[in-house]
Design a protein around this nucleic acid. Sequence first.
DNA 1: TTGCTTACTTACTAATTAGTCAGTATATTT
DNA 2: AAATATACTGACTAATTAGTAAGTAAGCAA
Lengths: 184, 184
Amino acid sequence: MADTTKEKIIDLADHLIRTKGFNAFSYADISAPLAIKNAAVHYHFPTKGDLGISVIERELQSLALHIRKWEKMPEDQQLKKLIDIFQQRSKLGTICLVGSLTPDYDTLPAPMQAKVQEMCTGILQWMTQCLEKGRAQQRLHFEGEAYDRALMVLSNLLSSLLLSRVLGGNTFQRMSKQLAKDLI
Amino acid sequence: MADTTKEKIIDLADHLIRTKGFNAFSYADISAPLAIKNAAVHYHFPTKGDLGISVIERELQSLALHIRKWEKMPEDQQLKKLIDIFQQRSKLGTICLVGSLTPDYDTLPAPMQAKVQEMCTGILQWMTQCLEKGRAQQRLHFEGEAYDRALMVLSNLLSSLLLSRVLGGNTFQRMSKQLAKDLI
DNA sequence: TTGCTTACTTACTAATTAGTCAGTATATTT
DNA sequence: AAATATACTGACTAATTAGTAAGTAAGCAA
């Protein structure tokens, strides 16, 4: 998938953040599988925070790409597409960046904290609009402010991955089905 | 609050897990503030996993005590009491153990993984019963299976603390109010 | 009073951590 | 052909990590 070393490092770091968490992986966890030296990782990403920021930025770009791709779909379908992305994560046994990085928030370097914030507000902003438009067209049904509902939806998606890993089995299916039933 | 060294260690570890995460705190973070030596912590808790397990067990006991105290209250009130506990956490800026430990699940020693599982299933079991009884008495209103709804409620409580820390301000209030409105 | 338990301290280890710096081979540019 | 930039390697470092082993002071028990 990735062909440059830099991309391979981001790929691996992304996977490590989603499986072990930001504080539980080391430069050795990246350099060893790629058969490069520690210093090579530092060449591309001087600090661990720089690496973390690149991982978030790539995720943000990837998400922006998906959202643009869904632009002409009805809002309930857009929401289902987002759920699909989380379902793929569930199958892989990996969690989302929000679920991985918000618990570690206080330990992150300041520039990374800012990126985590940017990621959360960005996702919520899109989701708020999606819910609002969907409700206006009576394709989505919920009570209260759209932003509040967006918080709940993000919450459910995020937690479904966390709880799936611990409770296993059909936890993700149960939660995503209930989420869809409640809204559509 | 705690008078023995052992209790003080558990207190501090609990706070560190909720603020920094299990992998981001060290024995030094515990021994230094208590003005004891590293080895003293190891005396009470041979491994870090042992300490983590004790923290979870104390939380489980504390929760069991609360639940017993609420036994004779109507189910909607019991749920509100649980939300109150999370609100206190939100004020302190600390997250819940489920929110802190499930993202790190894969990195935890096996006996601690088992305890995390026990904690999740225990909370969900109580909440499922609470929701079911509450619905039977028409004091709580929701669609679908009670267990599925319990997953969603736990999800919202857990995430409200995670997102509060990043988004700040009224995030917890928004989410907990919406949660109560949806159910009661 | 002798022995045993509890709750530590002193002093340590081996491993791992993020990060540095000087060098080098290979392209690319001038 | 000379200079420069890119993408590394080799060889470190200082700090921190969880964990250990031996010793000790105080209290309690036989």
